[in-house]
């Protein structure tokens, strides 16, 4: 069982969360009308073997989306931050 340190709630079981996939893909702006960025965002993944940044939704907890650093080979878990903070970092 994976366990994540939710920034709001503390260490919680995987069963309180839903998986949201790769957190490195960047959603195009709503006004983006070009095909490629949307195709890329919706369908293509790096699918790395090793460190992976990924979204989890603390749906049976504080309802916050978080970004988890997790290794897809060892399942070792690194930092867990609120998605809204991670996205801000991405932008800056």
């Amino acid at each position: 069982m994976l366990r994540f340190k939710c920034p709001v709630c503390g260490l919680r079981d995987e069963t309180e969360f839903d998986y949201g996939g790769d957190a490195t893909v960047v959603r195009p702006a709503t006004a983006e009308t070009a095909f490629e960025p949307w195709y890329d965002y919706v369908f293509l993944r790096d699918n790395p073997r090793g460190p992976h940044r990924e979204f989890w939704h603390h749906s049976r907890g504080c309802r916050q989306w978080v970004v988890v650093e997790r290794d897809t080979l060892s399942h070792d878990i690194g930092d867990v931050v609120l998605a809204r903070d991670a996205v801000k970092e991405n932008r800056s």
Binding site: V26, R27, F55, H57, W65, A83, V87, K88
Partner: peptide
């Protein structure tokens, strides 16, 4: 609900 929260907490924060 999960999707609305996702959009508001990530791309559209």
């Amino acid at each position: 609900m999960a999707r609305l929260e996702f959009l508001l907490q990530t791309a559209w924060s």
